[in-house]
Nucleic acid binder design. Structure first.
Lengths: 270, 270
DNA sequence: AAGTGTGAACAGCTTCACAGCC
DNA sequence: GGCTGTGAAGCTGTTCACACTT
């Protein structure tokens, strides 16, 4: 979530048709999200010529517990070697395959305001296999402009352009009022996966997948925690470690950083 | 989810010190995230002069199920009227209070690249009570520039400027390599809530709250679902209900938009 | 000795269904 | 009659601990 979620129906791919091939395997949503993180870390390790990692190391780099990581990877079937660890490249390939990251996915961004323009110029997308292939806006003043190396088209052109470029994923970065319209157009153009930044629920057919990122809501959650702290002033000076980071000297690979982020555990409210 | 999470410690506010006052109440994290959404919707309803809403209506506008909504609100104590619904303004006030949204929170953005600049100019923040009060960058070429109405300071100025402006929340929008540094500086400046867009785990003291938004990871999850669909072409028309949800026709308020987003239910993988 | 893979306990969140109130 | 508030049931996801492999 922080995310959206479905309202009704027991849902979930009925997946009856399983012909010949490897045994089917059901992967929890939460695990899929983390796969993306592991993949990124593995890419970096690979670039650093690291050949194998232990669950402990990989977990530290990804910011999760090692038990969770092993459990996650177990959904891929056996990929590690006991007593040794995981072969970086092998695991990476396996993950890429599972995530469908073997080929690049063309991305279309609708709404070239502040956010949309930033996304168009955001290198992180292209680097990870998601080139922004097309930009759309309803404002004629913006149409034709070159943003982040891509020309802005009018939304009316959406369907043909998306078709031609083979767009797989749509990003809605319009104001809230136009979000549903943008979404409808994407759906009509055959796009079946949508990432939206508009803070409104989008109505889509069952076959379309939507993920919502609500930035202001994120801040609001943080705000809640600030407020919590202000109310209850430091329950006690941290019992143990005064400075979080200490661990062993960095071994070889990149940062040994470990997330000390507080997340679980419900909170008391006055 | 999508989010980051802690690695160690059983966590959770020990909250022993409970003096006189209302009964304490523990709110699940997931519920807090949705509170932010409800608050937004209520703000809109209030602007539209709607006086009361039923859980059904409010839920539809927020994109959740009505049962979940009622359960969530029950953590606030009784706020509705049976047989009638919720008083919009009353509920809104109650939520604002709980979320600590009664006063504006000053936000500092570190890293004024594409994303940082977009955030600086993003109206959604200010509108929801999170004015971007300060910008920082390590690149001297950017220092002094005026972005989104705010001057960019050098990161070395971070502590004094944040102090002076009373910054509550820090946003890390730097490249991955500098994220930990930016984070450390924020923490040193006394900022205890951080939202990061860098795809690396941040090491922070226990007292600091971090939320991570990994945009590329979001796309990767979507990519996974595209791949899923490509592999198994429509397993079968849904056994029972062809269209989920049928409910009543739109009642009164704005859009009856309903999110049909597929989220739950694990997935089959070849 | 080191480290994976996993069953089983556990915790958190969601959904159901209905009692209680207006 | 309509709608909230909530126990209880069910599910998803996390943590633990240890058997098993190299």
């Amino acid at each position: 979530m922080s995310q959206q979620d479905r309202a009704t129906a027991p849902a979930a791919t009925p997946g009856p048709s399983r012909a010949a091939g490897a045994a089917p395997r059901t992967v929890p949503e939460a695990t899929v999200s983390r796969f993306a993180v592991y993949l990124r870390v593995l890419g970096q390790l690979s670039a650093d010529d690291v050949a194998t990692v232990s669950s402990e190391q990989l977990a530290a780099l990804a910011g999760v517990g090692s038990a969770k990581l092993r459990k996650d990877l177990s959904f891929l079937g056996s990929t590690g070697t006991r007593g040794v660890g995981y072969d970086v490249d092998r695991l990476r390939t396996r993950l890429e395959h599972t995530l469908g990251a073997t080929r690049r996915r063309q991305v279309a961004v609708v709404g070239v305001g502040n956010l949309g323009a930033a996304l168009a110029g955001y290198d992180g997308f292209g680097e990870r296999g998601f080139p922004v292939a097309a930009l759309f806006d309803a404002d004629p003043a913006r149409v034709g402009a070159l943003v982040g190396g891509t020309t802005v088209h009018h939304v009316d052109e959406l369907a043909p352009v998306c078709h031609e470029l083979g767009v797989d994923i749509g990003v809605v970065a319009t104001p809230a009022e136009s979000a549903q319209d943008a979404c409808d157009r994407l759906v009509a153009a055959g796009v079946r996966c949508i990432l939206t930044f508009a803070p409104v629920p989008l109505a889509v057919p069952d076959a379309v997948e939507v993920r919502r990122v609500d930035l202001a809501a994120e801040l609001q959650v943080l705000s809640f925690h600030v407020a919590r702290r202000e109310a209850g002033p430091a329950p006690a000076p941290p019992p143990a470690h005064p400075s979080p980071r200490a661990a062993g000297a960095r071994p070889a690979g990149p940062r040994p950083a470990r997330s000390t982020t507080r997340r679980n555990g419900p909170v008391i409210v006055p």
